[in-house]
Amino acid sequence: MNAATIFVHGFNGGVGSTSHMISAAQHAGWAKQIMTATITRYGRISITGSEKMNVKNPIIQVLFENNRAPEFVQINWLHSLLILLKREFNVMEYNGVGHSLGSNDLVNEALMYGDDLRVPKLKKLVTIAGPFNGLRGFLHAKSVPALLKMDHRPSHQTRHFKRMLQYRDHFPKDVQLFNVVGKVDGYLDNDCFVSVNSARSVKYLLHGVLKDYRELLITGEEGYHCSLNHNPMVFNALNEFLWDDYATLPNMQTRNVPISASELNETNALASNVG
């Protein structure tokens, strides 16, 4: 059976946080949602939908009944779900797609439980607007070319980020990661909720561990935190990354960049030279 893909919403999110991405994947013929896993505020897992996993690229939508639960609680819930999927539904491999805190949940679960043989093997991750280093860098203001020249290593690391670094060696091997970052023009270096610096820091967090890292920076109105998971540009890139074996995404992309012609030329030159 091919890998199942789980979609995880963020803090205060719900069905609408991931349903557009799932619908786009189904409409394009890449995958099919076969299950919804709802985790109650007490940690019980309720499965609805078809239990047949032998379809092309099965999708599982994950919903937290308490969508404001602390991150460490959501990580444990997600871990329990993955154990259940392997034990009860014979899911041996999985991909993860997370928006906002859902990105952190997926990365942290793999960091903390990467050695646990009870969970399926992680193949690919899509992280969208993940606040991996908290709100550090939220008030910085740099041009897009200057941002792309910056090291992914955060200059100031939160206590949580430092703790994640300690688990880096536990992260599963051979995982490919596609990271989507937003920057709303006029709102400094952030998507109105998460800083560019924090969202990009996942590359440093997992450097030397990942098999491959790809990045998409979306700026302007489409770079808003709650627009990134409703964006057709993100849908197309996500679908290609997860399911098109012949697609080759560049290491650095920019989309919808509302900057001057000279900055745009410099940005394109930087993107084309990243190898």
Results as ranks from 00 to 15, higher is better:
Lys173Trp: 00
Leu63Phe: 09
Thr40Ile: 04
Asp174Asn: 15
Tyr246Leu: 12
Lys211Met: 04
Asn179Gly: 05
His160Ile: 02
Leu135Tyr: 04
His170Cys: 13
Val55Trp: 09
Val8Asp: 01
Ile34Asn: 00
Met150Ile: 04
Val180Leu: 09
Gly98Lys: 10
Asn236Ser: 10
Val194Asn: 05
Leu242Ala: 00
Glu109Cys: 12
Gly13Pro: 09
Glu266Ala: 10
Lys203Phe: 09
Asn256Arg: 11
Trp243Met: 09
Ile22Trp: 08
Gly220Asn: 00
Ser23His: 07
Ala247Asn: 08
Phe171Ile: 15
His27Asp: 14
Leu188Arg: 14
Met1Cys: 01
Arg153Ser: 15
Lys32Ser: 02
Tyr204Val: 13
Gly134Tyr: 01
Leu82Met: 12
Asp244Leu: 00
Asn190Gly: 06
Arg214Cys: 06
Val184Lys: 13
Asp105Val: 15
Val257Ile: 14
Leu122Thr: 13
Ala25Lys: 03
Leu125Asp: 09
Pro131Ser: 05
Asn239Gly: 08
Leu106Asn: 10
Ala25Trp: 01
Gln157Ala: 12
Val194Leu: 04
Ala4Leu: 11
Val62Gln: 10
Asp244Lys: 09
His79Met: 06
Ile218Val: 15
Gln253Val: 06
Tyr167Pro: 01
Asn66His: 02
Trp243Gln: 10
Gln166Trp: 01
Pro120Arg: 08
Glu88Thr: 09
Asp189Val: 06
Tyr213Asn: 10
Gly182Leu: 01
Leu111Pro: 11
Leu210Gln: 14
Asn268Pro: 04
Pro145Gly: 01
Pro232Tyr: 01
Ile128Trp: 05
Tyr213His: 15
Phe64Val: 11
Glu109Asp: 08
Ala25Gln: 06
Thr219Trp: 08
Gln26Lys: 13
Asn12Cys: 04
Arg168Tyr: 00
Thr127Gln: 03
